[in-house]
Design a protein around this nucleic acid. Structure first.
Lengths: 340, 340
DNA sequence: CTGTTAGCGCTTTCAG
DNA sequence: CTGAAAGCGCTAACAG
């Protein structure tokens, strides 16, 4: 008897075929969704497979199929709860549709073409990009290779690719309208120095509408980064300015939380009586009773749904023109704005 | 001229070989780390590959190699910032080592053997499990198939597999010692009803040490879930009990934050003067100035490092006995305990 | 060092 | 419906 335990030899379709007394083709067919097999052989094969603990080898399959069902997700800023949730939802939906997500964290610092290269070597069926720093080159490469790609909340890139984006203009406008309606008219914005498409659009929409309503000029305070500390930093500047505001739009919740805490610690202003605040994204922490931040929600579940659907559609009709899905946003009133 | 644009035919090693005027083996070798090729041919091949935009097809390669370099990460509770960070770090380290992480979110509800099945069909080189609800069956299956698997912060499972765990006993003990040293002696614990290995160990260690120091009995308050709301819920019960405590150990930061907020909103007790609080995990939010929670840190970077190293070691020596790495923890003093 | 020859495990015409 | 045969892209002996 030979030692064959070195590396638990995995059972292949021929093993199953042999045991079922049929050909490899037969077993292949039973495991191929729309193939034609007599239910009789099918049974035999299934039985044999069961007995042997057979699993089709997707890697081998994809070699002939030319489709791996692997999908790359390139993401950055995963410390932002909004991102984390986004990614979780997307991976879930992908798996539901029988794809396998390969996660590639990518900070701005990294070479985008390197990371896309890693993905392409695995013949990914598609790529989803949610990172803030939008690697133009990645898109280029995917497009020319015919790899479907979908951009999440990105607009600036100039390439014929599918996109899913939340209605950032609405975000800014809703924020302004709400603040205005609730009586605020000395307005400020808190945002990040690091530019990012979504943030800029929100900010502009807010300011534009303010101007068209003839409100006083909106002041802008910035933090170095788009995160908690950045929010605190910007609020610090705002307070130091000694100017008096009664309405504040923080372009992301993540920053808003930092702003709120800084405000509480370094000022006697009360929210919402002296100052009303609105954030954007509706991250989980915003609903924590310690914050109870009024914000504008983007439904990450719908977002994920849209992203995956976009990918599916693209697989269906590779040549169709690039699409853009715009997602609804919704005001969530909590305690940082007047009851009104 | 034929239409060959249907699906941008990908270039293979033979294309490169042809153009470089060498054999396929030659090109294979140039792309195989420790292979022997004359620098002359290597150059030619590299040039040709460059020109053609060639990429080795890892899927095909793994078919012969018997190693895909794909690594499955099965994770649950990704809403917990601690988890999110853990996962991000692990994926980063994996990629650094040239592995590709396939992320599989898995709630308790899902069928573990289904999800491991999905992974096995892709011939993953290894599996990392960080989900709380520890699927015994998964381990069994991996072990019998010879797929390396590493369990993160899991002990209860009975299988000869590698583990990485933080020193939960120390967590409990440090919490108790710190509280005690700072003068607290009417102690309580906040934890989750849903049992989890780490949480239980922390709790027990805390209580055991309290007993051996002859302190008054430690009261336990629980929330339904191991999250923010669970923490608030438990604190609500604590307050309702009208008992007076001066030291509280929340078994996770995530719960601690909810507890803190609930305490502020529903009680006049002041922290740390009336009540000192210690959490565990050191999630990002704990350092936010709004919380400034004293806690016990587990370095997620080291954790990730240890996990990946464990995997690497296992690849090296598949037959070696199962290992367990215990990670140091460290007290981080912030404002919810006395300066002292 | 290099090319030739077999496969890896699976799917897919193509006859039967 | 079924089996035989060819091949997906790559690597690993094996001779030269």
């Amino acid at each position: 008897m030979k030692r064959d335990d070195e590396r638990a030899k995995s059972i292949t379709s021929v093993d199953v075929a042999k045991r079922a007394g049929v050909s490899r083709s037969a077993v292949s067919r039973t495991f191929t969704p729309g193939a034609s097999v007599s239910s009789e052989t099918r049974e035999k094969v299934l039985k044999a497979a069961e007995d042997l603990g057979y699993r089709v080898n997707q890697l081998a399959r994809s070699l002939t199929n030319k489709r791996s069902d692997l999908v790359g997700i390139v993401a950055a800023n995963m410390d932002n709860p909004f991102r984390a949730e986004q990614i979780e939802q997307i991976t879930r939906k992908l798996i539901e549709q029988n794809f396998r997500p390969i996660l590639m964290p990518a900070e701005a610092s990294e070479d985008p073409s390197r990371i896309i290269g890693m993905l392409l070597e695995y013949s990914v069926s598609g790529v989803i990009i949610t990172s803030d720093t939008p690697p133009q080159s990645i898109c280029q490469e995917c497009v020319s290779l015919g790899v479907p790609i979908v951009l999440v909340n990105k607009k600036e890139i100039d390439a014929p690719v599918d996109r899913v984006l939340m209605d950032n203009v609405k975000c800014g406008e809703i924020a302004l309208r709400t603040l205005h309606r609730k009586g605020a008219n000395r307005l400020a914005i808190i945002t990040s120095e690091k530019p990012s498409y979504s943030l800029e659009v929100r900010q502009k929409a807010f300011i534009n509408l303010a101007e068209s309503l003839d409100l006083a000029q909106v002041e802008i305070y910035t933090g170095s980064f788009q995160n908690y500390n950045g929010g605190a930093e910007a609020m610090h500047k705002l307070i130091a300015s000694e100017r008096s505001f009664d309405g504040l739009f923080c372009v992301t919740d993540y920053m808003a939380l930092g702003s709120l805490d800084e405000l509480r610690l370094s000022s006697t202003l009360s929210v919402p009586d002296d100052l009303q605040i609105i954030g954007c994204d509706d991250i989980r922490q915003s609903s924590w009773q310690g914050y109870a931040l009024t914000t504008i929600r983007q439904d990450t579940d719908k977002l994920a749904q849209a992203v995956v659907q976009t990918l599916l559609d693209r697989f269906e009709t590779p040549a169709a023109p690039a699409t853009t899905r715009l997602l609804e946003v919704e005001l969530i009133e909590r305690s940082t704005t007047q009851k009104n």
